[in-house]
Design a protein around this nucleic acid. Structure first.
Lengths: 192, 192
DNA sequence: CGTATTTTGGAGCGAGCGCACGGAAACTCG
DNA sequence: CGAGTTTCCGTGCGCTCGCTCCAAAATACG
């Protein structure tokens, strides 16, 4: 019925996500997005709306790919403490593997834009809540199986892990000493 | 010998720091800085150099005022666990008290600008290291007095607290439930 | 009081920003 | 193959950006 697109929308969205992820919202220009996606400016605007809408789409895409991957690590079978350790070790290793890496996009969005944009804040909250819930379920499972003491509530322990986890991802931006970071992980897991 | 300044340099620096802190580096224009400090553009450039230099000055000013305040909380006398609790509770309360608050400037700088600016990264590292060292000393003191088990090294425990602490400050941007946040603090302190 | 020196305020520079637009191009379908 | 529809690409608009410059203003000193 009309001229077909010569790009894949998901590929373009992934490229835009990586650009926002690495450079942040303000430091990313629409030319940067045009370059990294390979789309012309008008195609960008036709497909995704304006810069802010594309940022929100990128953040949601991060949820569907990366946040989902994090909770998937927790939902796997096996000893619960190993699942929790996997989550954190995986984060440390991906943060350290790529020198261009830019931590966790959700945290970046939370710091740079959640204050000034209600929709961004709600989206960030959704990410946080999803990970927190996955952690709570995992810990509750561990408490039922006896791997984790039921002394403190699963919710409190989950928030404690969540806090350590996000702190790790902030520290890992500066502190590149893998052993020090893994020491945090071990100490946290063994304290459960 | 010449026309005297009609502003106080420290006051201007404090105002600039608060602007960068709240809005971030990229979203802050030199007009914003001119407005918040009350200085004309030429006075700003005469006194502080360009925008980036002013940002570095602001970050160092944060170190001397706010980071120093954090370590001062730890250096006070009294039970060690109370000192650690104070540090975290104080952060939660200041983050929640002011709806305009924007978390921890060091974390913000780490997320927005440490990747792309070596001097910012070194300054952020200095903040992190200072808090980590203060935590290590505090925990070592607790181990000597018997308040904290010497099973795990003071350095590892310090980094664990540091991680939780920074995670708390990220979470507090979104999660405004004081009881949930304080639950993290209690759980962390009681696990020592 | 005149001169030297520094600060101040405001205008304005070139560059890059987000975004819009219009015509050419590439398809589907009658 | 022509009509209709959507996408693509380049140009450029209005604006704001970081930063500079300069003349007026305000002091200290001989």
């Amino acid at each position: 019925m009309a001229r077909p697109r010569k790009f894949d929308e998901t590929h373009a969205l992934t490229a835009a996500m990586e650009t926002f992820w690495r450079r942040g919202y303000e430091a990313t220009s629409t030319r940067n997005l045009s370059d990294s996606t390979g789309l012309g400016q008008s195609s960008l605007y036709n497909t995704f709306g304006d810069k802010r809408e594309l940022y929100l789409r990128a953040l949601r895409h991060y949820y569907e790919t990366h946040t989902a991957e994090q909770t998937a690590l927790l939902d796997r079978p096996g000893p619960v403490k190993e699942r929790l350790r996997d989550l954190m070790v995986h984060a440390v290793d991906t943060d350290l593997a790529d020198p261009e890496a830019s931590g966790c996009f959700t945290i970046n969005a939370s710091v740079e834009k959640a204050d000034s944009d209600d929709e961004v804040r709600e989206e960030v909250r959704r990410h946080f809540t999803t990970v927190e819930r996955a952690l709570t379920e995992t810990i509750a499972r561990g408490q039922r199986s006896g791997e984790i003491s039921p002394e403190r509530s699963a919710g409190t322990l989950a928030r404690q892990i969540l806090s350590t986890y996000y702190g790790l991802r902030v520290l890992a931006r500066i502190q590149k000493d893998r052993d020090a970071l893994l020491g945090i992980v071990e100490s946290t897991v063994s304290a459960l």
